[in-house]
Design a protein around this nucleic acid. Sequence first.
DNA 1: GTGTATATCTCGGGG
DNA 2: CCCCGAGGTATACAC
Lengths: 219, 219
Amino acid sequence: MRLVVAACSVDYAGRLSAHLPPARRLIMLKADGCVAIHADGGAYKPLNWMNAPNRLVEGEGSWTVTNPAGETLTITITEVLSDTEWELGVDPGLQKDGVEAHLQVLLAEQPQAIEEGLVLVRREYPTDVGPVDLLCKAQDGTTVAVEIKRRGEIDGVEQLSRYVAFLDRDPRLRPVRGLLVAQQVKPQARILATVRGFAWREVDYDTLRGMESTTLRLF
Amino acid sequence: MRLVVAACSVDYAGRLSAHLPPARRLIMLKADGCVAIHADGGAYKPLNWMNAPNRLVEGEGSWTVTNPAGETLTITITEVLSDTEWELGVDPGLQKDGVEAHLQVLLAEQPQAIEEGLVLVRREYPTDVGPVDLLCKAQDGTTVAVEIKRRGEIDGVEQLSRYVAFLDRDPRLRPVRGLLVAQQVKPQARILATVRGFAWREVDYDTLRGMESTTLRLF
DNA sequence: GTGTATATCTCGGGG
DNA sequence: CCCCGAGGTATACAC
């Protein structure tokens, strides 16, 4: 990783045009070829950037970064305060826990935690309008399409609407109920879900994990 | 801005749990208090971060960053390769051109570019389900709700559906047509728009700009 | 502040 | 390769 602290102005020409007036900034050049221009604020997002793969041409007082799509980032440097390079090696990568994927796994393992008597048919059930998180059968034989979110918002209800409308056209599945499951279901999503005739349910991640370990102990 | 190149491991505990095994990385501490841990790849996004405002406690071989929500980032440092600080000052900020906002302005100025005889009623017409990009009247007196996107995708059609359904309940506006306008309308969006009874239209940004300058010359 | 929509989103998975 | 969905999304803007 090469770190250049410099007074510079920057121009990006690609999906849009963007210009940065002269100021002191950090120019970060990563080993994979991506370039980022950072100011001293504004969260982690750089002011300007170019993702790898890139071609970097270092001219006299001006660098030009070009990507295969023909987008360019032109950095005009007036003063270099520091220019260092560091060998960082390949990063072992981030280990995550707690995201929707894990919530989906937990609920797939114990659909009865969503609704009594619910049985899993298939996780990520494929349809022409996208994969349904969980396709289940209810105790009374009704098909239930379950949409899982960390936070249940309006777009989750829209997604569920598309799935249910599609599935309900299949005579082998009809009638199909929609069910929105989230750690937290926002008021607007509750209303829209109700209007669309869908049930919604809040679940607790830690409780589910506890139930999982209980299940593992019992069986 | 403080730049620390160090061998470290990192733990985040907050909305999820995330762990970074020991490796050499860049720790970027910005003047506004945000912290970002960068590896030597992976676009501009850091492996781990904490947005401002934060409280940073530098302990012996371990830093703890805490935010008001109680989330923590713990950086365990085993070896410091470099630790520098730079005064960058306040950045003058990025000047952009070409985003949806400008497309909206251009189309508001020349709705006839979307459809012959179309007249603007109001830009950002407010409804209970969000603002409609352009509310127009067609030549035959029909109300037309226009949703503008850079790329027309399925969620744009969903948005338009909500607007049209809402507007169509107003006797002064009924009947209301929906119209999706984008630089590029994706196949799935075309299908869904057609199914919902909406027209869609692709427009060229540069052509619109050209028409604008022509208009300015003529009038 | 909440809610809504955008982003040069980034990132990962599946066909 | 594109398409689609999720994100600790971040960010701006309106109510």
